[in-house]
């Protein structure tokens, strides 16, 4: 039975290029809930995240995100689904250096095939406390600010699922704290599911749902 209000996989497996095969137990997460994926480094956290957000086709198994079997979609439709329904945050912000903060957000809207929404951009930047940086270029931002822009970029299209891969590992305590707060409040407010892969102890104390590898 497929539930449109949950993210659900059956047993997934992936083979690395070196021949090593990794298997993941079924994963279920209700809409609007946060969840941590933890494990030693090299345990496959990133691989599972990529499988969950449509970046890596599993060798075996299926991924249903709110009722959509994403790996049954044609490539283009999968790209589009990812752009509109999933927000991804990486360890480093990786903003486009040639675009301003606001243009980076516009790019996310454009690539998802949506209209530019300036009000939404301002609203998000304001909530993240970086509105005054809207016309700055990424090189002019501090690491913490850049990571916040990356979060704004992931949230701009109101995704139903937000995925973060070690979002705090390169930040100091105070920045890590505020980034984590942002992630949690933003997802609770918008009924967005949140999956964080991390081995950062600072996060573990805040989110109780664990998926241990």
């Amino acid at each position: 039975m497929i539930d449109v209000r949950e993210i659900k996989t059956n047993t997934l497996s992936h083979s690395y290029k070196n021949g090593h095969t990794i298997t993941f137990q079924p994963f279920i997460l209700k809409q609007g809930q946060p969840c941590l994926i933890t494990g030693k480094s090299g345990s496959g956290k990133t691989t599972l995240l990529h499988l969950l957000c449509g970046l890596l086709r599993p060798q075996r198994g299926a991924v249903h995100i709110f009722g959509t079997a994403i790996y049954q979609l044609p490539n283009r439709a999968l790209d589009h689904f990812r752009g509109t329904s999933i927000g991804i945050i990486f360890q480093k912000p990786h903003l486009l250096p040639s675009l301003t903060v606001q243009e980076n957000l516009t790019l996310a809207q454009m690539l998802a095939g949506l209209k530019k929404d300036t009000a939404r951009q301002h609203d998000l930047l304001n909530k993240l406390g970086i509105l005054e940086k809207a016309n700055s270029y990424p090189v002019q931002l501090s690491q913490g600010q850049a990571q916040r822009v990356a979060i704004a970029r992931a949230l701009i299209n109101r995704p139903k699922l937000l995925v973060a891969d070690e979002p705090t590992s390169s930040l100091d305590d105070s920045n890590a704290e505020s980034v984590l707060n942002l992630l949690i409040t933003q997802t609770v407010d918008n009924e967005t599911s949140l999956i964080i892969a991390t081995h950062d102890q600072r996060i573990k104390s805040r989110i109780s749902t664990l998926y241990q590898l």
Binding site: C53, D79, R82, G83, H94, L96, A108, L111, A112, G113
Partner: peptide, 12 residues
């Protein structure tokens, strides 16, 4: 950079 753009919905 290009990979990030792909994650944001850009097709190949």
């Amino acid at each position: 950079e290009l990979a990030i753009m792909r994650t944001m919905g850009a097709s190949r």
